[in-house]
Design a protein around this nucleic acid. Sequence first.
DNA 1: CCTCGCTGTTGATCTGCGTCAATGTTTTCC
DNA 2: GGAAAACATTGACGCAGATCAACAGCGAGG
Lengths: 248, 248
Amino acid sequence: MLNERSLAVHQDCSDCPIRHRAVCARCETDELQRLEEIKYYRRYEAGSHVIWSGDRMDFVGSVVSGIATLTQTMEDGRTQMVGLLLPSDFVGRPGRDTAAYDVVATTDIVMCCFRKKPFEDMMVRTPHIAQRLLEMTLDELDAAREWMLVLGRKTAREKIASLLSIIARRDATLNMRGTEGQIVFDLPLTREAMADYLGLTLETVSRQISALRKDGVIELEGKRHVTIPDMGRLMEEAGDDADGGLLI
Amino acid sequence: MLNERSLAVHQDCSDCPIRHRAVCARCETDELQRLEEIKYYRRYEAGSHVIWSGDRMDFVGSVVSGIATLTQTMEDGRTQMVGLLLPSDFVGRPGRDTAAYDVVATTDIVMCCFRKKPFEDMMVRTPHIAQRLLEMTLDELDAAREWMLVLGRKTAREKIASLLSIIARRDATLNMRGTEGQIVFDLPLTREAMADYLGLTLETVSRQISALRKDGVIELEGKRHVTIPDMGRLMEEAGDDADGGLLI
DNA sequence: CCTCGCTGTTGATCTGCGTCAATGTTTTCC
DNA sequence: GGAAAACATTGACGCAGATCAACAGCGAGG
């Protein structure tokens, strides 16, 4: 997951969000060089599977551009999104070789990949990489736990407000804007994808978005273009205290 | 979180579940020795707070005996448990110094602690520690994501069955028993704590447990002593395919 | 022994969200 | 331009689980 903290590190590595430049800033140059040598890029179309749950994973990598989702599905088709992958987010798990989740491209995406074996070898030789990955994984764990509160205890309206507030802040951070004044962004998800993230149905998502619009918490132009006139108000609606907030 | 995999590693270090012996099996003896030197133990009574969310954390460590919970609370009092800490589970976060969650002792517990600074120093000098922590954190992340599916998409009955199935398997693993034949264990949680874990009310928890008992999925002696006559049946009720299953 | 507090159970009722269904809007593709 | 498909909105209705309430069991402490 992306958050303000990891993003700050990401700034100096805009072309390849694995953030290995940041990771290796303290390493010897030849380690950095070796990392450069084993990397390659992959492109996926909107709607296509990047990874199927249960499949063998022979690479790790990160999103360069576009948006992907991490989802779990039960046998009867019930689906829960467990992560939203934005540019710079890491995918894959050193030390495990089957994927636990489906990764689906929501938009066209570009991934920066490393074959798993060489990457793992590099991890052993370059301690900072393991430390950096640990830091990133702990951030993701925090985000997942924050989301457990959303899923377990919030109302539909609060869930929608939480999601909007996360996307708004993320978007503001990505584009180097603050969260002062009004915030404008495009929703990167369909109503159904939002429902899968929030543990709701798409109808409920639609209804609650309409309600928030009617109440002036958000403004909508078309289906996806959102304006948040007052971020504080939105966060109140989300049930968050105004400054703490979600890390996702 | 504990799972079969981390527990296997834990076997050779029963007195101090930080698992540093396992962590350091490949390290020089003097690193292991140094880790021994900075460790100390703490004892907490049932019901007491080990850590308050937002407080400064000056140590990391792990549970030696007893059970603790990791919870988040909203301003209006709604509570969500985001983790269950059993013997050998790790607490704390190298690289961050305020706690994000409340840690509460459910039973009397003993923790094995390391002051954070020396532990972090050791991490820098001993790459295997960071790698081992990364592995453990990734396991926890998987568990958190599995739990997101439970919270977001399962019915009350399935939630209860999921929780029982996790506790049953955990208990079986801790006591070195298999999950063949019938499984017997004591619930380590009150109905309220179970509700907080599952995103339900305690009344619903109580009702669903009664229903599962009436249907022969579980047997109850008193309030806490549970017998699972058929683990496969329970996992069906949980909505899991019979072998995959939760990692928590 | 009795009382108090804590935990758990069960019933009655209410309500938020899911389900089913109809319809509108936008995009795609011939 | 028109048809079809994908995405979104809105309404009517039902139900799973929340809420409110009463009560039972049990250990602790006077």
